[in-house]
Design a protein around this nucleic acid. Structure first.
Lengths: 248, 248
DNA sequence: CGGTTAATTGAGGAGATTCAAGATCCGTGG
DNA sequence: CCACGGATCTTGAATCTCCTCAATTAACCG
C-alpha cells in the first residue's frame, strides 16, 4: 500500500466534480455555504475500512472520488456485498448513528463528510437536501431490487455478464450514449470481491470469465483489464431483455 | 374468487389504522386535509394485479389492509419477488409514471391512492410527506439489502427459516416484544410465491418445510397454518446471529 | 362427488462449491 | 537486475445442493 496521500480534495464546492449529482445537487449558494461549514474531507487508501458494521458513525457524506463497497458478513464468514459506491454516492443515514454494514475503500478514495448533528438539523429545515436524498435513495432501492433478481434467479454466467455490462455501460456512458463497438476498461474489483458481489465463489467467477473469453464475448490481456468487442453480444448474455432491463 | 367487495375503507384519515405509520404519519391536520382532497380508495381481490410492469401509473398510494407483492419477471419466465407490501407500505414513486415491477394483491386488499400530480406538488411544498417517505424508503433499502444477503448466501433451509422468522416475529410482535413460547400463524403466500420470494423452486420450498417439520422446528396441521414451538429454535436455523441479524 | 389447484415426494441430472495444485503478477530487497 | 515471497488468479477433480421432470396425494369449490 502506498504511503502518499490519495487525490486532493476540491478547493470548494464550486470546483467539486460531484457538485451536480451528490446530495448537494439541488442546493442554492446559501445552502451550500451552510454545508461548507459542516464539511471536511477524508482520504482513504485502497483496502482501508471507512466504517465498521455496528460501530458508531459521527458523520454522513459523499464519495468524491474512488470506489467503496458495502458488505454484510455472517457469523461463519459468508459475505455478501450489498452496494457498490461510486463518486457522488451517499454514505450513512440521517437519524441513525450505528452503521449496519462495513464500508470499505477498494481504491484510493476521498470522502466529503458532514458532521452528523448539523446535517440532520439541515435536513429538517431546508428541503433541497432531503429532496435530493430521497431521489438518490429511491434510485438505490431500484438498484438493490435489480440485484435481488440477479442474486435469486440468474446463472453464474449471467451474473458475470450483468456485472460487466454495468461497468461497460458506465465506461462508455461517460463518453457517449448507446455503447457501440469496442469498449475497454479496468475491473475495480478482485475476483473475490466480484464473487461477494454476485453471490458466487471466486473460483466460479474465474471459470465463467474464462468461459466468456473462450466464447469471444470478452478479451483479457491483463487479469484486470477487459475489452468487450461487442457490447450487444455481452448484453445478450445477461438474460435481460434487449434494452438491458434498465428502467425507462 | 369471491365476488363480494373486500373490507371497507376507513371513513376518514382520523379513523385510519395506518394513520401513524404511512406516508401521512407526520402530517398535521392542514396537510391531512390537503391529502384528503386528492385521495380515493380502491379495493382489489386476492390474485388481482394492482399495477403491471411497464404500464403507466396515475397514482401513488398506501396499502391500507391486505398484502401485496412486488415482482420482476425475466423474458423466459423466471420470477423474483423484490418486495412484500404490508399495511402502511407505499406504492409508486413520485416523479416516475412508469411502473418498474408488477404489483399484485395476494390477499383481498384496500389501497389509499393519491392522484399523482397533486401529490407531487405537495411533495415539493410541504416537507412532512417527503421526510416520512425518505424514512420509509431508507427502511425499505435496508430490508432489500438484508434480502440480498439471503438470496446470495443462504442455504434453502436458512432461507425458509429466515422467512418464517419474519412472519413469526411480526405475528408475536403485534402482541408482545421478544417472542417466547409457541407461535401460530397463517402463511400469506403459496409455496410457489414463497419460492419466488426466496429464489428457490416450489419443490425445494416444500421439501425444506417438510424437513423442518421432521426436525421438530415447526408443526404443520393444515398446509398454510404453521405452529412454531420455539422461536429461538427457529431463529437458530436462519444462519443469522442470536439477535436475528436485525438492525439495532 | 368430479375437476381444479396446491402441495408432497421421488429419481436423476446440472450447476456451483469445495478442496487442491499450479500459474501469474508485483513489490521488495539482496 | 534478478530472485524471492505473498497475493491473486486459473484450472482440475470430486462432491453436494438444488433443480427438473414426473407421479401422487391432499385440499378446495361449485
Amino acid at each position: 500500500m502506498s504511503l502518499h496521500a490519495p487525490k486532493l480534495a476540491p478547493r470548494d464546492c464550486g470546483d467539486c466534480q460531484i457538485r451536480h449529482r451528490a446530495v448537494c445537487a439541488r442546493c442554492d449558494s446559501d445552502e451550500l455555504a451552510r454545508l461548507e461549514e459542516m464539511k471536511y474531507y477524508r482520504s482513504f487508501q485502497a483496502g482501508q475500512n471507512i466504517v465498521w458494521s455496528a460501530d458508531r458513525m459521527d458523520f454522513v457524506g459523499s464519495v468524491v472520488s474512488g470506489i467503496a463497497t458495502l458488505t454484510q458478513t455472517m457469523e461463519d464468514g459468508r459475505r455478501q456485498m450489498v452496494g457498490l459506491l461510486l463518486p457522488s454516492d451517499f454514505v450513512g443515514r440521517p437519524g441513525r448513528a450505528i452503521a449496519p454494514y462495513d464500508v470499505t475503500a477498494v481504491t484510493d478514495l476521498v470522502m466529503c463528510c458532514f458532521r452528523r448533528k448539523p446535517f440532520e438539523e439541515m435536513m429538517g429545515t431546508t428541503p433541497h437536501v432531503a429532496q435530493r436524498l430521497l431521489e438518490m435513495t429511491l434510485d438505490e432501492l431500484d438498484a438493490a431490487r435489480e440485484w435481488m433478481l440477479l442474486l435469486g434467479r440468474k446463472t453464474a454466467r449471467e451474473k458475470i455478464a450483468s456485472f460487466l455490462t454495468i461497468l461497460a455501460r458506465r465506461e462508455s456512458g461517460l463518453k457517449a450514449r448507446a455503447p457501440k463497438g469496442q469498449i475497454t476498461f479496468d475491473l475495480p474489483l478482485t475476483r473475490e470481491e466480484m464473487a461477494d458481489y454476485l453471490g458466487l465463489t471466486l473460483e466460479t467467477v474465474s471459470r465463467q470469465m474464462s468461459a466468456l473469453k473462450r466464447d469471444g464475448v470478452l478479451e483479457l490481456e491483463e487479469k484486470r483489464r477487459i475489452t468487450v468487442p461487442s457490447f450487444d453480444r455481452l448484453a445478450e448474455e445477461t438474460g435481460d431483455d434487449a434494452d438491458g432491463g434498465m428502467l425507462a
